[in-house]
Amino acid sequence: MRLDLTTLVVDDQDEAIAFFVDALGFELAEDRASTTDDGRAKRWVVVRPPGGGAGLLLARADGPEQEAAVGRQTGGRVGFFLHVEAFAPQHARMLAAGVEFLEEPRHEAYGTVAVFLDCAGNRWDLLGG
Rank of each mutant, 00 (worst) to 15 (best):
G25W: 00
D38K: 07
Q13S: 13
T36D: 05
V47Q: 05
V46F: 04
T74C: 14
K42L: 13
G79L: 02
A88H: 06
R43T: 03
A114H: 00
E15K: 15
A61H: 03
I17V: 15
V9T: 14
A61E: 01
E108C: 08
A54Y: 08
A33P: 11
A88Q: 11
H107M: 14
H91P: 00
F87H: 01
P64V: 06
G25S: 04
W44H: 09
A33N: 13
K42T: 15
D62L: 15
S34H: 09
D11I: 06
R48E: 08
V70C: 10
F101G: 01
V84A: 10
Q66G: 10
V113S: 03
E100S: 11
G98N: 02
V9N: 04
R93G: 00
A16C: 11
L8S: 06
R60Q: 15
L127I: 15
H91Q: 10
G71S: 04
G39A: 02
T6H: 12
R72K: 14
Y110Q: 05
E30Q: 13
V10N: 05
L56S: 03
A18D: 15
V113Y: 03
A54S: 11
V9C: 05
L58H: 10
T74E: 09
Q13H: 13
G39I: 06
F80V: 09
V9Y: 05
E85R: 08
G25V: 08
G52R: 10
A109E: 13
M94N: 01
W44E: 07
D11F: 11
V78H: 01
F26G: 02
L58N: 07
T36P: 06
F81I: 10
L58A: 08
